[in-house]
Amino acid sequence: MKNAALNYRHLYYFWVVAKEGSVTRAAERLDVAVQTISAQLALLEQAIGKALLAPQGRRLVLTEAGRVALGYADQIFLLGEQMQEVLAETDVGRTMRLAVGISDSLPKLIASRLLDAALKLPQKIKLICYEDDFESLLGNLSVHKLDVVLTDRPVPSGTTLRVFSHLLGESEISLFGLPEMAKRYRPKFPASLNGAPLLLPTRGNAIRGRLDHWFENHDVRPDVVGEFDDNALLNTFGRNGVGLFPAPSALAKDVREQFGAVPVGELAQVREQFYAISNERKIKHPAVEAILSAIHGKEFMR
């Protein structure tokens, strides 16, 4: 037998009850009678054919089916709120909203340069950036909470998520340090790196394995004084003179301006790649297309 069409008002009442933990508090929040909510919850459970909530003392708790339903309800009503925001913005000067997820391992200077192309569009852009780990960002992208994810790695093969990788570009990697430190370690590079204080990404970072391999191939053993999940924090410690740190060679000017650091030496054949991840095979958002156009036009490498 075919299931009846889902009543989204009933689902919304369930969502509020689940968030509030009781029908009484949900009724106060929604300004409706307790009996109204109870009746509509009963109709929802009848339509689904499963109990979604169960009493536990004075509270209502989710059943297993309720936890599954709540996950979908979260996505549905979050998207509804975002739709209202986008429509409201469209009425005021035709603002375009761009929700971007930025991987915590991606150099922030890279992210800034990539997004600069979108901000130069004639149409006004409202940029909303979220920083998180790679897996969490992909999950949010797959349910359309984000328009695009900027990261340093492609989507792993075999993923069940319908998201797609777009290579934006790549850059050689150099080691940077404050001028006095760079002056000390630049002569006889890379042999000078033996015992040199070094700040590196943690081993879960896409570039870390390539760095370790390079050190091994050149028979150098630096003193790794810090490892960081967050690239911005790594750069902050580098700016404070704690150690040498890796960054894309293409950003040497930006690294000097923002962190006061200069190149010590380039790690030949160690490259960092940059990707846009979308939930469509072809990127359709005008602001994201502007990012791709800038990359293809070589603006990124200037």
Rank of each mutant, 00 (worst) to 15 (best):
H144C: 10
A27N: 01
V270Q: 03
Y8P: 12
L62D: 07
M301N: 11
Y8R: 12
E45D: 00
N217Y: 13
I277F: 10
L30A: 03
E135K: 07
K284D: 15
A27P: 04
V17N: 11
Q84N: 10
T236N: 10
A117G: 01
H296G: 05
D230G: 00
H10Y: 12
I102R: 00
H213C: 06
P55I: 05
K145V: 05
E180C: 01
S165V: 12
K282A: 10
A26N: 01
I48D: 13
S157Y: 14
V288L: 00
R210W: 07
S174G: 04
D230I: 00
Y13K: 05
W214G: 02
L52M: 05
M181A: 06
L168C: 03
F164A: 04
R29E: 09
E266Y: 05
H285K: 09
S171G: 05
Q123I: 07
I128G: 12
R58N: 12
R203S: 15
L146K: 02
W15R: 11
P154F: 10
S142N: 03
S165R: 06
G297K: 05
V155P: 09
Y185T: 04
R97V: 15
L137M: 10
T151D: 11
L43T: 07
D152R: 02
L98E: 07
K108E: 14
L198I: 03
G195V: 02
R9M: 09
T160A: 14
A65D: 09
N279A: 08
K108S: 13
Y72W: 14
M181K: 09
A294T: 03
T160D: 15
A111G: 13
S142M: 04
P190A: 02
M301F: 13
V255R: 06
H144G: 15
G297I: 06
L137R: 02
K19Q: 15
S174D: 02
L41W: 14
D133H: 12
G265H: 02
D104P: 04
D74R: 09
A250Y: 02
V23H: 07
G177D: 13
G265R: 01
L198A: 02
Q46R: 06
E299Q: 03
V224T: 13
K50V: 08
S293A: 14
L44D: 14
E216V: 06
Q269L: 11
P248C: 01
F189D: 14
G260H: 03
L78M: 07
L168W: 03
G226Y: 12
F215C: 15
A65I: 00
G21L: 10
D254Q: 10
N140T: 05
L87N: 04
N194P: 06
G101A: 06
L168M: 08
E227G: 12
A47D: 14
L79G: 09
T151I: 03
D104H: 06
